[in-house]
Amino acid sequence: MIRPHDSAIVRTLGHIVIPIAQLFGIYVLVFGQHGPGGGFVGGVIIAASMILAILIFGIDSPDSVLARKILHGDGLGLLIFAGVGGLCLIGGGQFLNYSYLQIPSLDEASQHYVGILLTQIGVAVDVAVTGVSIAVSLSFDENEIPNDEVSNV
């Protein structure tokens, strides 16, 4: 288990850097269709900001509550990606053929645009959750009982 860092400089800088990193990750994710970046890189940046929060404040701190909550979202990104494909199937086309997304008042090219954006969000969620999950797995100490199990007893 990772202990919280006790340096005031690191903690103060963490409070400044982590929100900026998360904002930049979302920017890279949403702007991926017009510049370099995309779902994978955006997800990795968001994951890195959460891992930074865990490393600085510890996993049990209120400052890393987002990183703790996101661990429950394993597979959510995959569901978003497959859900977009399923919507195309429901619309009467092939799996992941965004021409059949059936969004009202949008032409075919805009449907492709929305489809790309939604699947990118799916990839980003999947990568972010997996990154935080692997970091937590790597720092897992089997001699230490997690808080959830203590409260269940």
Binding site: G38, L78, F81, G85, L96, H112, G115, I116
Partner: peptide, 26 residues
Amino acid sequence: EQTRTPNVVTSVLMDYRSFDTFIETI
């Protein structure tokens, strides 16, 4: 013209070759 996406890398990854990306996500 087809996807309104100027970054061709993204449109290839997420649209023309989205099946590959899906398996990568898996």
